[in-house]
Design a protein around this nucleic acid. Structure first.
Length: 930
RNA sequence: GCGGACGUGGCGGAAUUGGCAGACGCGCAAGACUUAGGAUCUUGUACCGCAAGGUGUGUGGGUUCAAGUCCCACCGUCCGCACCA
């Protein structure tokens, strides 16, 4: 209620900028100037390099707010680094393969439109977006531009694939994959996400949200698991230069766990029945074989508490069991497996019912010789070995399952003495709940009395010695399936030959070009299958005329896993890149991008970098020295639900509806959500650039809040920033004559107190701005300080009465004018990275030649940073009661004296005893009275 | 459940090393200029109180001369992962 009433009072107005402030023409002028005069990159190898990179976009057709923030950040920092004298590259390109273009084309074909080929569309989108970027004043190095959909790029994507094939990093296998029935293609595990719709929770496609289905399919995989440990170790080296969020998510995703493999032995019996007794010895059926069954556990210390063994429905042993069990059991197992496997692995995981079937077989515990029943259970995943030793007493999942099937729990761990003493640790009743903490072993033969950690080590060592297992490391990370049954992607450069099998396309025949004339309407099989001329080829090995090309295309994440290397040598037609150029520019010094790529793109990119390192192409292992993850700019959506309607509206529409009596304020629900067309909560950055200018929009997205935090776009908030830009511009333009052709200061001309204060403000701004641009990236605070300086400057001009005075060497205001001149120059340079057009304009207005980006970044003068006199707070008993003005270098004694002499303290002291005084020079004085 | 982030005025946020909480901006209020203002400028604006003064950074404790900041316990919000044995 209070929310909706405050909402209706907060009127949203259409704010139009002042016509007299002609930012549009000067922005256009400077954009043209930069295009013609930008200093060539890489001209001077003696300068320190800086590689500024932002994630390249998918060319969807329009630049939206999701782009404005990262590109503004990267452009501001690139411009800053150039001013600092670095040799900077800040390239841009296009992640141009992918489903949206293909889907749009399909839609258009179905709607009967023409000229909608994904290629045509994509290239048109790119031209449009490049132009939008120019309007923002982004100083990207367009001569390095890459397009993943062009053969001159994907030739090298294919080349990397061949290198991976050579090294057995790429391989083919039949696998259960996630199939998106709507996109009609395979998704990688990382591309499947949990979707909650109404009350339903299911595994859906990260792109379209459709429920994914499992499918068995022959597909190409990249052996990223081979790199699991290196990917993990690399994370710790990145340290504080990567956000903790990304690092922990990647760590989690790799999911390293150290444990022990233990070989149980299963007695296979012919005619075994799962309905038989569950306690050993199982005697139904005839023994036919004994086979090893390896389980993986992180809690080998609980091995004496095993009361059954469970295997995953996909476990290879299941087939053998089905051949042996009696017909009733066969049917039960068969039905159970059918049911379980019809779900995706992740759906299975999200269900909470633990179910399973007894096989009638028994497994022998290698450590104590006990025979325990063997189950097939839905809660066991094909992780580790796909088999677990179940310990209901010390594992919650096993405990749940054991209750369902009335299996015993046997306690083998006791809390440590220390744990028993604590308030939560004394009572352990394994019949009621599993005790999952580590502790001291009991009922565990010779291991009894050991603590968990020691027992795990001892048991692992003994198993190893006995040849029945030993320590192992497992990962959650799976190999990366890259085959996609879609058209608009990079063809996989292999040939299938009936005689030779899979044959790689020879390097000299690259690229395998994606044909244009393909019927790409989705049928469930790869569109390239329907293109006989593409598919039919000679086997490069045996010359067989009836070989077929692979008709799948690669996951587009492959394309984007190496693009930043190509930027260093984008036009090279001979090799993927000149290693010397990569040595010059890489690793990337700063990579800016969204959190949505924390695991997908960033882990693939790191993997590719390590691979290219291994084949000797690059000499570093981590591609991005610093990763900055920016927040999302969200919008406030308004949904009106009443008897007339149930839909999203804009703020203006809501107002109109209320005025017409068609809605009441309380019918509206406001929510902060990701900007989207359907929710009408978006803002079009290009439209805002037209109305307010690029500098305003650039500054505005940075002023919204700390760049790594999500923030809400407030359509009214832009006016404050726009006003500031105008004020800054106006202040410089109208006061430029005050500092025109200043004669030098004579040695005896000194700054007055106001000038010293202004100088102090200007130089501390340099310190502040430098610190932020160097790495803290709290641009909002830099902007705030610049606003303050403009306010200070204006007040200074008024208070020093600079306007009226005559200029000349004898002008008494000359020192003040010099101070003003310096403050102007500092202000302009501090703002130049963020608002480059206005900074250029201001620089030019003050008589500057060329571009402001030819100017060096200012250095703070230490002398200006210290004031002669400072104001310090005085506390009495910890509460601020007043201030004192003291000399800058006043020591503790002087501070104490000044404090005692101050009115505030005298008044409060009033005869009371001073117990203690704390005086911190330069900070504070605290008087403690009794 | 595990992991991460966060909690400060009407709002976005500042306070980086324990040292004047609320910078800067929005909004709001009053005034100036103006034919007009949704332009521009000036002033005010954490809360309670006429005031003196008091209270105040999610809650409760603690350390300290001094805590938004450090420690302990809790509450809440958001995000990610989630039967990984």
């Amino acid at each position: 209620m209070s929310k909706s009433s405050s909402g209706s009072s907060r009127r949203q107005r259409v704010v139009e900028p002042d016509d007299a402030f002609d930012f549009a023409s000067y922005e256009a002028h400077w954009q043209k100037y930069w295009a013609e005069h930008l200093a060539p990159v890489g001209a001077d190898a003696s300068r320190k390099k800086f590689y500024a990179l932002s994630m390249f976009p998918y060319p969807s057709g329009v630049l939206h707010f999701g782009h404005a923030l990262p590109y503004t950040i990267i452009d501001a920092l690139a411009r800053y680094k150039r001013m600092c004298g670095h040799d900077v590259i800040c390239p841009m390109g296009w992640d141009a393969f992918g489903l949206p273009a293909e889907n749009a084309a399909i839609e258009a074909v179905r709607a009967g439109k023409s000229n909608v080929h994904p290629k045509t569309n994509t290239l048109a989108n790119i031209d449009h977006m490049r132009e939008q970027m120019r309007r923002f004043g982004y100083s990207f190095d367009w001569e390095r531009e890459v397009f993943t959909c062009r053969a001159d790029y994907y030739k090298w994507t294919q080349w990397i694939f061949l290198k991976m094939l050579e090294r057995n990093i790429a391989y083919r296998k039949k696998a259960r994959v996630n199939w998106c029935p709507s996109c009609k293609t395979v998704l990688a595990n990382e591309q499947v996400e949990t979707i909650v719709k109404d009350v339903d929770e299911f595994q859906g496609c990260f792109r379209c949200g459709a429920k994914v289905e499992p499918r068995e399919i022959d597909a190409w995989f990249l052996r990223i698991t081979e790199y699991a440990d290196r990917l993990l170790n690399g994370l710790s080296q990145l340290g504080k230069n990567w956000s903790e969020l990304v690092v922990s998510q990647q760590r989690n995703w790799i999911g390293r766990s150290e444990g022990v493999n233990i070989d149980f032995e299963v007695e296979l019996r012919h005619g075994a029945s799962g309905s038989g007794p569950l306690t050993p010895p199982g005697t139904d059926g005839k023994p036919v074989d004994r086979v090893p069954l390896t389980v993986f556990t992180t809690r080998a210390d609980t091995v004496f508490g095993v009361t059954y063994v469970a295997i995953a429905p996909e476990h290879p042993l299941v087939k053998r069991i089905l051949e042996l069990v009696d017909s009733r059991t066969h049917k039960r197992i068969h039905d159970f497996i059918q049911e379980t496997l019809s779900m995706t692995e992740m759906d299975r995981a999200s269900g909470d019912e633990k179910e399973g079937v007894a096989t009638g077989m028994f497994a022998v515990n290698p450590l104590n010789g006990e025979k325990v029943p063997l189950f097939i259970a839905n809660y066991v995943l094909m992780y580790g070995t796909g088999a677990v030793m179940a310990v209901p007493a010390h594992d919650e999942r096993d405990h749940d399952f054991s209750r369902e099937y009335r299996l015993p729990a046997k306690q083998v761990i006791e809390p440590t003495a220390e744990r028993k003493k604590s308030d939560t640790g004394q009572r352990v009743d394994v019949r009621r709940a599993a005790f999952t903490e580590p502790g001291i072993l009991v009922n565990s033969g010779k291991y009894s009395g050991l603590d968990s950690q020691a027992a795990i080590a001892a048991i692992a060592a003994d198993l190893k010695a006995a040849g029945k297992g030993g320590p192992v490391v497992n990962y959650k990370l799976r190999d990366w399936g890259i085959s996609r049954q879609r058209y608009w992607g990079c063809p996989i450069p292999v040939v299938h030959c009936d005689k030779c099998g899979i044959v790689p396309v020879p390097e000299r025949d690259l690229p395998v070009e994606l044909p244009d004339d393909v019927d790409f309407l989705p049928t469930g099989q790869s569109p390239l299958t329907l293109h006989p001329a593409f598919q039919k080829t000679r086997c490069p090995r045996c010359g067989n005329e009836h070989a077929r090309r692979d008709t799948d295309t690669m996951d587009t994440f492959v394309d984007s896993s190496w693009y930043w290397f190509r930027y260093t040598d984008a036009k090279n037609g001979e090799v993927i890149f000149d290693p010397a150029k990569v040595r010059r520019w890489c690793p990337v010094d700063l990579y800016v991008g969204g959190r949505e790529h924390a695991i997908l793109h960033l882990i693939y990119a790191r993997f590719f970098c390590k691979f290219l390192h291994d084949i000797g192409l690059v000499d570093h292992e981590e591609p991005f020295t610093r990763m900055f993850t920016h927040g999302l700019i969200q919008g406030e959506s308004i949904k009106v639900v009443n008897e007339h309607m149930n839909r999203y509206v804009t703020a203006d529409q809501l107002e109109a509806l209320i005025a017409q009596g068609k809605a009441r304020a309380e019918d509206a629900t406001r929510r902060i959500e990701k900007m989207s067309k359907s929710k009408l909560n978006g803002a079009d950055p290009t439209e805002l650039v037209r109305r307010f200018g690029a500098d305003t929009v650039r500054m505005c997205v940075l002023f919204l809040g700390p760049a790594e935090q999500d923030s809400v776009w407030d359509p009214n908030g832009i006016v404050g920033v726009h006003r500031f830009i105008k004020r800054w511009h106006e202040t410089i333009l109208s006061n430029a004559p005050l500092v025109e052709n200043l004669p030098p200061l004579a040695p005896d001309q000194r700054l007055g107190p106001a000038a010293k204060t202004l100088r102090h403000a200007a130089h501390s701004l340099i310190e502040k701005a430098t610190q932020e641009y160097e790495g803290r990236y709290a641009f909002n605070t830099v902007i705030a300080r610049c606003m303050e300086l403009v306010n200070d400057i204006r007040a200074f001009i008024t208070s020093e009465k600079l306007e009226g005075a005559v200029k000349g060497a004898t002008d008494p205001t000359l020192p003040a004018r010099h101070t003003l001149d310096e403050a102007f120059s500092i202000l302009n340079r501090a703002l130049a990275p963020i608002a480059p057009h206005t900074a250029e304009e201001a620089h030019r207005a003050l008589g500057g030649r060329g571009s402001i980006f030819g100017q060096p970044w200012p250095k703070a003068d230490p002398a200006a940073l210290v004031l002669d006199e400072i104001e310090l707070p005085v506390q009495v008993n910890g509460k601020v009661r007043g201030t004192i003005r003291v000399a800058r270098e006043a020591d503790a004694k002087a501070l104490e004296a000044a404090a005692l002499a101050s009115e505030a303290v005298k008044k409060l002291l009033d005869g009371k005893q001073v117990k203690k005084m704390i005086a911190v020079p330069g900070k504070i004085v605290n008087v403690v009275v009794g």
